[in-house]
Design a protein around this nucleic acid. Structure first.
Lengths: 210, 210
DNA sequence: AACTGTGAAGTTTTTCACAGCC
DNA sequence: GGCTGTGAAAAACTTCACAGTT
């Protein structure tokens, strides 16, 4: 989702598939496999082999004709392209049920992300422990995020507060927001937003049911 | 995501935007507005007005020239198209942190979905209360889902169990799966899957950061 | 004057199909 | 024989621009 002007010439839709490839490759590696092909990967993912080859070709020739792709090598390359060969510090806003689930989720650390601070506006929650973090009050938000130079955040607050939180985050320097609140955010150019709204996903499927 | 053959001729990408429109319209209605235009809606969502008009035109002429769209009417029409003018019973599999957050989430009921049963394999959890449901053991899954004629399910179990759970759900008659586990599922034609993997969303954004 | 609905034009994305390499 | 990388072709999707309606 290039928020506005796209600086590079690689389609965003291609970028969107790379994390899926990376996830599948990581799984193959865990299963002990060393080499795969665009065909095998495509079968697993329900994507055509041509599309996978074309997508990867945007970033260079990662494969070997006749052989396929060295899984460990391709994983490294994709991590580099997606810039997750480093670890990104992430701020979490909202320490309700959802915030707790997100804070306790084990799946971030080995895929490039680490929650480093949690904020909430509820006086009862401030100071409490969540995961391994102490919940900080809202008005620490800017100082903490600026100080730690945090660029990535997740919003897990009620819909009516989400835009206000987003504005504060952006003001503090955040450039990528994963929004769990069921509302579309308005953000300036250069800020990226992704949405997770389970109902949107469900509604997209019921269309096809009878 | 038409799992295989698409019976109708309306692009899936259009279907995917309808829930977004519906969400924005519901919000406008809550704010007390009666009428909107493709332009206003597009501004809010960062989508061109032409696209909104074209998308809606697949299902009939919902608007009035010179005036725009009657919000309440358009909401009703979209609900009907997406088949959420009824309430779908949903099964939830997995009662860990994530399962708890999902089970306690307030946002399903007024948007067409109602969690009616929760399953887990952990003997310690079975019989416990979650939201307003008693956690049932895995081997009740088929009986309960068949009996209640449930067509929609959410998977919130660890990645290594997700495919097995999906297979059981499908065998029991489920046709739409919202998968929170970070793994691509293999499902037969006629079964629809949507994925929620926060890391995939985050990785899609870090590409654009420096 | 404001706005929709829609063919036509333009752009993007996917698939095809094959030369080249292992 | 099996597989990649890639131009070219095909398909899908978005935007344009305007006739027609309120």
């Amino acid at each position: 989702m290039p928020s506005n002007i796209v600086s590079s010439n690689i389609p965003d839709i291609v970028i969107g598939r790379l994390p899926i490839y990376l996830r599948a490759l990581t799984r193959l590696a865990q299963e002990g496999q060393d080499v795969t092909s665009s065909h095998e990967l495509g079968q697993r993912l329900g994507i055509s082999s041509a599309q996978i080859r074309k997508d990867l070709s945007h970033f260079g020739g990662f494969g070997k004709q006749g052989t396929g792709y060295q899984i460990a090598y391709l994983i490294e390359q994709l991590k580099q392209v997606l810039k997750v060969n480093r670890e990104w510090d992430v701020a979490l806003v909202g320490a309700g049920d959802l915030g707790h689930a997100v804070a306790n989720y084990r799946g971030f650390s080995d895929r490039g992300f680490r929650i480093v601070c949690v904020f909430d506006s509820d006086a009862d929650k401030i100071g409490r422990q969540i995961g391994q973090h102490v919940i900080e009050p809202f008005d620490h938000l800017k100082a903490t995020i600026t100080e730690r130079n945090i660029r990535v955040a997740m919003i897990a607050v009620p819909a009516q507060n989400a835009q206000g939180v987003a504005d504060k985050l952006i003001d503090a320097g955040v450039r990528a927001i994963l929004n769990y609140a069921p509302i579309s955010l308005n953000v300036p150019s250069g800020v990226y937003v992704q949405y997770i709204d389970p109902v949107v996903h469900l509604q997209r499927m019921t269309y096809y049911l009878d």
